[in-house]
Simulated assay, not measured.
Amino acid sequence: MERGEAVVRRSPRYLRFLLSGAIVGIVVALILTVTFPANDEFSIGQVFGFLLLLCGVIGMTLGAVVALVFDRVLAKRSHTEQVEHTTLTTPEG
C-alpha cells in the first residue's frame, strides 16, 4: 500500500454552462424577434435565424466565461488530502 497526497477540488461542468448559455440565447432571440416591428425586407424566420445565431453564440460565450470564473473561485478552495493507493488482484479464470 502506497501513501501520498492528492489535491481535491470541485470543478464546473463546462458543457452544462455552454448549453445553458445557448438556451438563454435562444430565448433572447425569440423575445427580440417578437418584440421588433415587422420588416418588409426580411421574413420573421430570417430575422429569428439571424438573431438565433448571434444570441446563441453570445450566450454560449457568456456561459463559458461564467464557468471559467466559477472554476477560478473553486480552485482557491482546493485542499490536499492524504490518500492510499492499493492494488487489487483477482484470479483469472
Rank of each mutant, 00 (worst) to 15 (best):
R3A: 12
I23V: 15
L30M: 12
G56P: 07
D71E: 09
L15D: 06
N39Y: 11
T35C: 12
A64P: 06
L32Q: 01
F17Q: 05
L68A: 12
L51W: 12
V73K: 10
S20E: 05
L19Y: 05
V57C: 08
G25S: 10
L74C: 06
T89M: 15
R3L: 12
H85S: 15
S11V: 13
L30N: 05
A22M: 08
T86A: 14
L32I: 06
E5Y: 10
R13F: 14
T61I: 04
V69N: 05
V47R: 01
V47Y: 01
L51R: 09
A22I: 09
V57P: 00
R72P: 03
T90D: 13
F36S: 10
E5M: 10
A67P: 02
V47I: 14
V27F: 10
F50Y: 14
V69F: 10
L53M: 12
L18D: 01
R10W: 14
K76I: 05
F48I: 01
V83L: 04
V66R: 11
L53D: 11
L88S: 13
R77N: 12
F42L: 05
T80D: 08
F17R: 01
L18Q: 06
V66K: 03
P37T: 07
R72G: 12
L68R: 07
I58D: 03
M1D: 02
Q82R: 08
G21H: 09
Q82E: 05
G49A: 15
